[in-house]
Computed example of a mutant assay.
Amino acid sequence: MSSEYDWLTLDDDEEIVWAGQPSSQSLYGAYLVGVPMILLLGLGLVVIAAAYLRQQNTDYVITTKGVYKKTGIFSRAVTEIEFEKVQNTSFSVGPVGRYFGYGDVMISTAGGSGVEMILDGVTDPQAVQKQLSRRVKRAQGDADGETDESTKEDVLDEILLELRAIRQSMDNGAAARESVTDADPGERDG
Results as ranks from 00 to 15, higher is better:
residue 4 E to M: 12
residue 9 T to W: 02
residue 9 T to G: 05
residue 10 L to Y: 06
residue 10 L to M: 14
residue 12 D to K: 04
residue 15 E to I: 14
residue 17 V to G: 05
residue 18 W to V: 11
residue 18 W to F: 14
residue 19 A to D: 10
residue 19 A to S: 13
residue 20 G to W: 03
residue 21 Q to S: 12
residue 22 P to N: 09
residue 22 P to H: 06
residue 22 P to I: 01
residue 24 S to W: 12
residue 24 S to N: 05
residue 27 L to T: 01
residue 28 Y to L: 14
residue 28 Y to P: 00
residue 29 G to M: 01
residue 30 A to K: 05
residue 32 L to Y: 14
residue 32 L to N: 05
residue 33 V to A: 15
residue 33 V to S: 15
residue 38 I to W: 12
residue 39 L to G: 13
residue 41 L to N: 04
residue 41 L to R: 02
residue 43 L to C: 08
residue 43 L to N: 02
residue 43 L to D: 02
residue 44 G to S: 08
residue 46 V to C: 10
residue 46 V to L: 15
residue 47 V to L: 07
residue 51 A to Q: 05
residue 52 Y to I: 01
residue 56 Q to V: 03
residue 59 D to G: 14
residue 61 V to F: 05
residue 61 V to W: 01
residue 61 V to L: 06
residue 62 I to S: 10
residue 67 V to T: 08
residue 67 V to M: 00
residue 68 Y to F: 11
residue 68 Y to M: 00
residue 73 I to S: 06
residue 73 I to Q: 10
residue 74 F to R: 11
residue 75 S to F: 03
residue 77 A to R: 00
residue 77 A to Q: 00
residue 83 F to V: 09
residue 84 E to M: 12
residue 85 K to V: 12
residue 86 V to G: 00
residue 86 V to Y: 00
residue 87 Q to D: 15
residue 93 V to A: 04
residue 93 V to R: 11
residue 96 V to K: 03
residue 96 V to F: 10
residue 96 V to Q: 04
residue 97 G to I: 04
residue 99 Y to E: 04
residue 100 F to R: 00
residue 100 F to H: 07
residue 102 Y to G: 02
residue 102 Y to V: 01
residue 104 D to P: 13
residue 105 V to M: 03
residue 105 V to K: 08
residue 106 M to Q: 12
residue 107 I to M: 04
residue 107 I to N: 00
residue 109 T to V: 09
residue 110 A to T: 06
residue 111 G to W: 08
residue 113 S to L: 08
residue 114 G to S: 01
residue 116 E to M: 01
residue 116 E to Y: 02
residue 117 M to F: 00
residue 122 V to G: 11
residue 123 T to K: 12
residue 124 D to S: 07
residue 126 Q to P: 00
residue 126 Q to F: 12
residue 126 Q to R: 09
residue 127 A to L: 13
residue 127 A to S: 15
residue 128 V to L: 11
residue 129 Q to T: 04
residue 133 S to Q: 09
residue 137 K to V: 00
residue 138 R to K: 14
residue 139 A to Y: 04
residue 139 A to C: 03
residue 140 Q to D: 00
residue 142 D to Y: 12
residue 143 A to D: 06
residue 143 A to K: 08
residue 145 G to A: 11
residue 149 E to L: 13
residue 149 E to T: 03
residue 150 S to P: 05
residue 150 S to D: 13
residue 153 E to C: 02
residue 156 L to A: 15
residue 157 D to K: 15
residue 158 E to V: 07
residue 158 E to T: 08
residue 159 I to G: 01
residue 160 L to Y: 12
residue 164 R to K: 15
residue 167 R to N: 09
residue 169 S to D: 10
residue 171 D to R: 08
residue 171 D to Q: 15
residue 172 N to V: 15
residue 173 G to V: 02
residue 173 G to P: 01
residue 174 A to T: 15
residue 175 A to W: 03
residue 175 A to T: 15
residue 176 A to E: 13
residue 177 R to T: 13
residue 178 E to N: 13
residue 181 T to S: 14
residue 181 T to N: 09
residue 182 D to W: 03
residue 185 P to L: 10
residue 189 D to T: 11
residue 190 G to W: 09
residue 190 G to P: 02
